[in-house]
Structures are given as structure tokens and as C-alpha cells.
Design a protein around this nucleic acid. Structure first.
Lengths: 198, 198
DNA sequence: GGAGATACGATACACTGTGTTTCATAACTT
DNA sequence: AAGTTATGAAACACAGTGTATCGTATCTCC
């Protein structure tokens, strides 16, 4: 499987970790664009050329950060996901955002350069289609609705971070259900017939 | 007022127009990032240094394009706007997009570098508040709802362009009302009391 | 239609940031 | 402890930006 326990050189782990931390710190200080690869390498106490032995670009480093965070979030949401209670799942996500606010801030600061959308879109589409199916008389094709779901969810998270995470995660979860999830269903999906009970 | 009829040198008009056209053509050919200022100047048959006499950056040129298009759209929507029929206004916007698809494509191609959101956000907020007012028991503050409105509308337009503008503008207008406008109202606004009938 | 203003083209230049290469040295694995 | 592999340092080629200068062409306004 994927978790094939391939021993990774301790130096590699250390260097990557340093680069990640350096990027986060610098982006929070100066913003994404203002940070150069030289800056990151210097802050990380790592040779400039060494950066490229691990990441092809600043964006690749950011993407690595995203993978870790997304994995964490996914295991948190578990298998249930969008199924029954969108409000609860939404609240879970916002709680996760609050817990890792710095990381999310950095990702969003660079979200013009890393494609958060397509990455999150796959996951969302798969989950949605587990509980729902495209409605035959739908106003929009499913792809449009999924695109809307992902991007407006990201926009909402971004706004929340900028606003100082003021409304509670629970409230934001409720808003997510009313303002995003429910309309998306209404426009493109219908509840999937349960096969089992028979 | 602003339209102070300041005569602009014919050479200036000509050069700016050439630069705009060149940018549009090149971005459609190669994508936004792949186009350099030297490319634009060359395609426009304009000296490289001349570019900077008119625009401080590629982004400034793009922003100029945006201003023109936005002005056109605004005069099309007129004073009514979000007031009564969101579906109709939505359809108008999508029709405008279809009519100027190339320009919209270019703007969206560069939307990671020019801030379409804040520019459009002001307009949207003002129009919304003419017909509605923040609800006292709202789930979200108005700013959150406006942010959602603008960003998801842009996302929807972007998707539509990528999808080949398939569902008709009317259908897209209807989807806009159901999936975006109505939920936004439900979450943060209530109908403003008309001054008279009290 | 002509004088004065101003925009333009061409060229050279300084500067910043990226990505590659090389080689000696240090750190890790087994 | 021996062998493998990652690292640091430095030099380099390259692409793109933004500025400065100056002679020439074009426009405006009277």
C-alpha cells in the first residue's frame, strides 16, 4: 500500500521540516509574494541549492504543507462526511481551521499559486456522490455545483480567518449548511436511493 | 465631475489600445503567466520602454481592461440591479459574459494577479444594501454574505466559460438566484421596509 | 500651416530572482 | 567502521523587470 514505511534519511526529514517552518514564518511576516527561495533557505539555515534538492519551487513546498494538513482533516472527518449532517461536518472543518490557523493562513496567502480547488474538488465530488446522485431535471450539471461548493467554502474559510474567527465554528457550520450545502443539493442533486433495507 | 473631457493625445490612445489588444491576444494564446511585458510590447509594435510610460506593470494593464468592461456591464444593469429579479439580472450578466467572452477569459486567466473581488465587492455591497438591510438575528454578518456572493458568482462565471458556455444565460441566471442570491438573503439580510406604507 | 510641446523608438544598463553545477565535507545507515 | 548519501558554499547562465538617455516623429493649438 501507500504507507510502505520507506525509511527516510534523518537529514532529509530535518531539512524539509526546517524549510516548511521557515516558509510559514516568513509568509506570516511578509506575505507570500515577498518571500524568495533564498529567504526561505537562509531562515531555515539550509544551503540555497539544497532547497531545490527537495522542492522544485516555492509552490511545491506549499503543496507539501497542504497535503499534510488535508490528510489530518480527512482523518478527522472520517468516513461519514457530507452524508447526514452538513452542519456538523462544517463545524468540524472550521474547528480544524482554528486549531491550525497559521497554516491555513499561509495556504490561503499562497492560494493564488497553488491549486487548492482542484485538490479539494476531487474529495468533495466523491463524498457528495456517495449520498446523492445527479438529479435528472437539475438546473445545473453536477460539475458546476461541485465547483461552487468547493470555491465558496474556501471563500468562507478565508473570510472567517480575516475576520478574526469571530462567529463560532458551530455557527459557521450552520451557515455552511444553509448558504452552501442546501442550495447545492437543490440545484443539482437528489437523495440517492438506499439499496439495503429491503 | 469625473468626465472632464480631458483631451488625450491621439498617440496615447493608439498606443494604449495596441497594448490592450496585444495583451488579450497573447494571453489567449499562451496564458497569462507565459506572457512577458517584452512580448506585449513587441506584439503591439511598441517600444519596450514605452510600455512603462503607460502602465506600471502587466497587472495595471489588465486592470485597465477590467475597468472598461465593468463600466460597460454596469450601464447595462442600470439602476435596478439586485432589487426585484435576481434571476433576470443574473441572466444579463451571463449574456454580457458571452458577448465579451475573450475579455472575460483574459481577466479570469489573470485573476490571480488582479483583485477582481474587492473591485466587484464594493458594487455588490452597495446594491444589496439598497434593497435589503442586515437582519438582526442573522446567522452571518453582512460582510461575510457579500464576500460569498461575489466570489461564488465569479466562480460560477469562470466555470461557465470553461464549460463552453453551455447552459443558456437564462438558465444560469436562474441558478444564480437559487444557488447564490436566495441563500445569501436568507443568511444575513431581510427586506428593507419601504418608506411609505408603514 | 507652422511652432512648440510631447510621445515614441532604440539602446544600454543595473538589478533581482531562478535554477544548475561542482566538489569537498559532514552526517547518517547498516 | 565502511560505504552511502545529504549538505554547504560558491560560481554561473539566464530571464525578466524597471530606469535613463537622446534623437526623431507626431500631435495640438493657435
Amino acid at each position: 500500500m501507500s504507507g510502505a514505511a520507506v525509511k527516510v534519511d534523518a537529514r532529509v526529514r530535518r531539512t524539509r521540516r526546517r524549510l516548511q517552518d521557515a516558509l510559514v514564518a516568513l509568509v506570516l511576516e511578509r506575505g507570500y509574494e515577498a518571500v524568495t527561495i533564498r529567504d526561505v533557505a537562509e531562515r531555515a539555515d539550509v544551503g540555497y541549492a539544497t532547497f531545490f534538492r527537495h522542492y522544485a519551487s516555492k509552490e511545491a513546498l506549499l503543496l507539501d504543507l497542504l497535503e499534510g494538513l488535508l490528510g489530518d482533516l480527512m482523518s478527522l472527518l472520517g468516513p461519514t462526511l457530507v452524508d447526514d449532517d452538513a452542519s456538523r461536518d462544517g463545524a468540524t472543518v472550521f474547528a480544524h481551521v482554528r486549531q491550525h490557523a497559521d497554516l491555513y493562513r499561509v495556504l490561503i496567502a499562497g492560494h493564488r499559486h497553488v491549486d487548492l480547488v482542484s485538490r479539494a474538488g476531487e474529495v468533495a465530488a466523491a463524498s457528495l456522490l456517495r449520498a446523492f446522485e445527479p438529479a435528472p431535471d437539475a438546473l445545473l450539471p453536477p460539475a458546476a455545483a461541485v465547483n461552487h461548493l468547493v470555491r465558496s467554502f474556501l471563500a468562507l474559510i478565508e473570510w472567517w480567518l480575516d475576520a478574526g474567527m469571530d462567529p463560532s465554528p458551530e455557527r459557521m457550520g450552520a451557515a455552511f449548511e444553509v448558504m452552501i450545502m442546501r442550495p447545492v443539493r437543490a440545484v443539482a442533486f437528489r437523495r440517492r436511493e438506499r439499496g439495503g433495507t429491503s
